[in-house]
Design a protein around this nucleic acid. Sequence first.
RNA 1: GCGCCCGUAGCUCAGCUGGAUAGAGCAUCGGACUUCGAAUCCGAGUGCCGGGGGUUCGAAUCCCUCCGGGCGCACCA
Length: 552
Amino acid sequence: MRAHTTFKATLGRVLADLGLALPEKAVIEPPKDPTFGDLATNAALLLAGAAKSNPRALAADVAARLTAADSRLAKAEVAGPGFINVTFTPAFWQETVCEVLAAGERYGASSLGAGQKVQVEYVSANPTGPLHIGHGRGAAIGDSLTRILRFAGYTVETEYYINDAGRQMRMLGTSIHARYRELLGAPAIFPEDGYKGEYIKDLAQEIIDARGRALLDLPEAEAVDACYDYGMNKILDGIKEDLVNFRVEHQVWFSEKSLVASGAVQRSFDNLKARGLAFEQDGALWFRTTDFGDDKDRVLRKSSGELTYFASDIAYHDDKYRRGFDLVIDIWGADHHGYIPRMRAGIAALGKAPEQFDVILVQLVNLLRGGAPVAMSTRAGEFETLHDVISEVGTDSARFMFLSRKSDSKLDFDLELVKQKSMDNPVYYVQYAYARISSVFAKAQEAGLACPTEAAPALLSQLDTPADIDLLRALERFPDAVEAAARTHSPHHVSYYLRELAGLLHRYYTLNPVLAAPNAELTSARLLLLSGVATTLANGLALLGVSAPRRM
RNA sequence: GCGCCCGUAGCUCAGCUGGAUAGAGCAUCGGACUUCGAAUCCGAGUGCCGGGGGUUCGAAUCCCUCCGGGCGCACCA
C-alpha cells in the first residue's frame, strides 16, 4: 500500500513535469515476476499517443526522471513494449517495520469507508431448530466481513432478522403441540410437513415438566400458541448461545412480527400504491417488480389476506434505510439466489441506488467425515448442528475453514481433516507462525535480550537480504489485502494473505537464526522484524475472528 | 424451457474492475532436527485456465455460443 501510494505520487509529479497526467486507467501493480521489480506501470503505453512519442521512448524518459525525483526508488527500467518497472531501496522496505510497530493493532486499518454506515444482516435462520453447519459458514463470513469493514473505517451494525410472523413458525407451534399431546397419551395428529427432529419432542417434554397437563385444557389455538412461544424462545436462546460460542455477535435482533405490528408493512403498501407500483388483482395485492427488471410481478398480500415473505422484506429493507444505512449487505444461502431480482426491484422502488444493496450468497457446505458424506436433512430432523461441529473441531479451525474459500463456491468440510493438527489444516500453519515468534520472544527475554523499543533506521538497515526484503514486502501488502477484502466483501482475501505471510515467516525462521545471529545488532534487527510479523499475523487473525495463540 | 452460480495441476482451490513465462496448499518422490518449537523447511514433475468464436496491441479475466455440474423459477418460507 505504502509502495503503491509512494510510487503513484512520484510518477504523477514526473508526468506533470512532462505536461502529462496519469490516466485513470493506468495500472500500478506488482509485476508477475518479482525479479522485474517491486511495482510496474503501463502508464507509458497509455500516454504515448498524448506525448506524441512511442511507448518505449516515453518510458525511458519517465524512468530516468523517476529515480532522479525520488531517492526511495533504487531502479526504474523499461521492459517489453513500454512497461516501467521500479525497485525500491532496502531502506524504503525497512521503514515498513516502523509503520507496523507504530500502528500496532491498528496496522492495516484505514479510512477507506470513513463516514459510511453499513448494515450487515446475516444468519437470520428461522428459529424453528438449531443452527446447522451451513448457518455456521454464513455466520463466519458475516462476522469476519463486519470486522474487516470496521477495520477499513466503515461504521457497521450487525443484525439478525427473526422470521417470527409466518407459517413456518405456526408449524413449529403445531409440531410441538402434537408431540406434547402424544407424550401425554392424548389423541394427536402430527402435521404432515411438521418438524420431525428429536428436539421437538424435547421441547414438548420441557413444557410438560413446567406445566404438566395444563395445555390439554386450553383451546387448541391457545395451546399451540403457548407451545410456539416456548419453543421459539428456547430455540432462539440456543441459537444465541451457539453464536456466542462461535464468536459471532449480532447487535440487533429484529422481529418480523414487530414490523407488521408497527404498521410498517401497511405503510410500505400505501407508499407503493400511491406511486402506482402496487395493484389489486384476483383478490391479491401485487407489486409491479417488472418495472424494475424482475421477470414477473410479485404478490405482497395473498387473496387469503396473509402477507407474503416478500411483503415484510420490502418493509424491512425500507426500515433499514430509514435507520440511515448507506449500504445494506444481506448474507443469504445460495438457494435463495432466485430471490435477488425481486429484492433488487424492491430496493429500486425504495429509491435506493443499486450499489447501496449487496447480497452475499453463501454456497452449501458439504459435510464429510474422513471423505464420506454426512447426511444432512433438516426435514428428516437428522443434521449436524453447528454446536456439535464446534465442540468437535473447535471455533478457530471451523472459522478458518469457512473463511478460506470464496463464499460463492461450495465448501467441503471434512470433520476429520479440520480436526487434524496437520499441514492439511491451514489454521495451524498460520497460528504456528505466531506461536513460533512468541516463543522466540520468550527465549529472548530469558536470555536478557530485549526487543528494541525503537526501530532505528541504522538497526533496520541490517535487514537487507532477499529473505528480509521478501518478508518486509509481505508486511507492506497487508493493508492492500484488507482493502481488497473490504472492497469486494470477501474475507477470504485475508486468509489467503495470512497463509502467504506465515509461509514466508516459516522459511525465514528456518534460515535466519535470531538469538544466535552473528552479532547483537542483527539479533535486534531480526527481533524487530519478527515483532512486525507477529503484529500483522495477529491483526489478520483478528479480522477472521481466529485466535493468535502464543503457545499451541 | 428461463434465470443465477460454478468449470483453472492427480485432489481442494486462489487469481476474474484485461497486462509480461497462469499460482498456492495437499497428494507423489527425494532431502534437512547435537542449534530460537520438524504442527516446520529445502528440492523435483505437473496445466488445450471445459470447447469454439468475438472484442483488444494484449483475455483465465470482457461479450456470444455450446458442453458439463449445482441451484432456483409459488398467492412457500
